[in-house]
Amino acid sequence: MIQQDWSLLWPKIAEATGETLYMVLATLALSGLLGLVVGLALYATRKGGILQQRAVFVVLSTLVNVVRPVPALIAIVVLSPMTRELIGTAVGTDAVIFPMTVIATFGVARIVESNLLAVEPGVIEAARAMGTGPVRILLTVLVPEALGPLILGMTFMLVALIDFSVIAGTVGGGGVGNLAITHGYLRFDTRVMVVTVVILIVLVQAAQLLGNVLSRKVLRR
């Protein structure tokens, strides 16, 4: 066992952290957008919803329930043929963004749906009484009214994605997880292990802090 010099390790640690941030933030952006759309659709098409569409709701809801219980690691493996088709490779930082986005999208969708359901029905009725159409109600009433909880929900997703990215790292995804396995585990370098854990803690803390500050700003409390 040859312990590498810190001067050689730091660049690797910095690079791995950058990769992790890239994976997590790219996935968050993609799944945030897609999940918002799916969540809005779930909310609107449900029974008694403002765009009630039973068939659409059943399909979406079933899809969400099928995808969500799949463990992250399994998803990466199962989706790898599609990943290769789409990205050109099933290995590496770019490649894992695809399965991560798929899983996260449906998680975000449920978060969005449940937060929208918590919006006071009275304000929707008020908007309807003013002659506002369903799509506008979704975008100009429901999303703004639920924004505080939505930000907290997205923060929860961001933290989950950091965890997810570490798992992805162990199966060729790169980033901090990969570093922990290749240097910390396979080379028995406890220092690297400790550093990666500290990095993950710092990332999670930062994500949570950002989410709390933003949601507090929106909720004005």
Partner: peptide, 23 residues
């Protein structure tokens, strides 16, 4: 539905629980 939405703009409504937009 589109014409109905236009017609609703000429009918104001006030609610028991006010139903104001908190945002």
């Amino acid at each position: 539905s589109r014409q109905l939405r236009a017609a609703r703009r000429d009918i104001g409504m006030v609610f028991q629980q006010f139903n104001l937009f908190r945002s």
